[in-house]
């Protein structure tokens, strides 16, 4: 039970990084549909950096660079050239798959045994981790999960209590007004996409450097899209996103738990499909959405 909840928290970490970044870009009026590719580039870049340098820190820096590169291309094509966001994202996701696998081969050749790095270890916080029940779940995690605890309140603060947060929100709701106020709409959107690239890079690298310690081309397997969905279901609000990420992390942890159990009445595939089914049900049943008014609409200066 405690194990499962701790795993749930760990599994929800990359989803939250991805979904919060998606929330910021969508609040500024542009969807980051290259999110799945950005996760994959992060997983790839992170592994390469960590394997070659032997340092996880350098791995995560590489992951950030790889993710940002992808969202930068995405930003140029969708924001500057105003091409369709869904369509561009799909192309970049195919490209990321080809690029990551190809470059992996370029760098490492065909390894005889699978290459591995030592994954990011958990750090038990003294005293706090000794609290019964709560301690092992919340305070015996890895560094990135600890950072996650601060990301949600921090992004709440940035989005609602700072002037830049107001600019971000207005850019998604009423870009003309932002433009009149002398702020470059496209610059805000591209900035959000670049920050999203960094977050998605870290999220992707979480799979290769924290959960598995290796890289395969199927390592992300739709988790980027889950983060995309969480932003939607979280109603573009930080605490909604937190709730969504935790729910999906829990579903994933339960899936892992049941995979190792024999003689189950409910098939394991059901738990794998559960997050997706939940997304569908929640998308259908919710009516009042806080969807940014100009989401997906390129800004044309008249």
């Amino acid at each position: 039970m405690i194990d499962t909840l701790a795993t749930a928290l760990m599994m929800s970490t990359p989803l939250l990084y991805g979904a919060i970044s998606e929330m910021f870009t969508e609040r500024s009026g542009v969807m980051n549909t290259s999110i799945e590719g950005a996760f994959l580039m992060g997983a790839f870049g992170g592994f390469v950096g960590a394997y070659i340098s032997g340092s996880l820190l350098i791995g995560f820096i590489f992951a950030i660079i790889s993710g940002v590169l992808l969202t930068f291309i995405y930003g140029i094509v969708t924001v500057k050239y105003k091409q369709h966001q869904v369509v561009t994202g799909t192309a970049l996701n195919i490209l990321a798959l080809g690029l990551a696998t190809f470059l992996f081969r370029v760098i490492f050749g065909i390894p005889v045994i699978p290459l591995k790095v030592t994954p990011l270890q958990t750090i038990a916080i003294p005293l706090l981790s000794k609290i019964p029940f709560v301690g092992p779940i919340f305070f015996d995690q890895n560094l990135l999960t600890y950072i996650m605890y601060f990301i949600v309140p921090a992004s709440f603060y940035v989005l609602y209590k700072t002037s830049y947060g107001l600019i971000i929100r207005s850019t998604g709701e009423n870009p003309e007004a932002v433009d009149v106020a002398g702020v470059d709409v496209n610059r805000v959107r591209i900035t959000m996409l670049l920050i999203a690239g960094a977050f998605c890079g870290i999220a992707g690298a979480f799979y290769s450097l924290t959960i598995l310690g290796l890289f395969t081309s199927s390592i992300i397997g739709g988790r980027g899209w889950i983060a995309f969905a969480i932003c939607f279901l979280g109603n573009w609000r930080p605490y909604g996103v937190l709730f969504g990420a935790l729910a999906f992390g829990l579903a994933e942890a339960i899936g892992i738990r049941f995979m190792v159990m024999e003689g189950m009445v409910i098939p394991n595939e059901f738990f794998i499909a559960l997050p997706y089914i939940l997304t569908i049900i929640l998308t259908i049943t919710r009516n009042s959405f806080n969807i940014p008014a100009k989401l997906g609409v390129p800004y044309n200066k008249e």
């Binding site: 799909t90 192309a91 490209l95 190809f102």
Partner: peptide
């Protein structure tokens, strides 16, 4: 050539086609 090269080609072609719309 590695098998992933096919996806590299397909991804590049699609991306450039999208840019050509602009």
């Amino acid at each position: 050539t590695p098998t992933s090269f096919t996806y590299l080609m397909l991804g590049c072609v699609t991306l450039f086609v999208i840019i050509s719309y602009y």
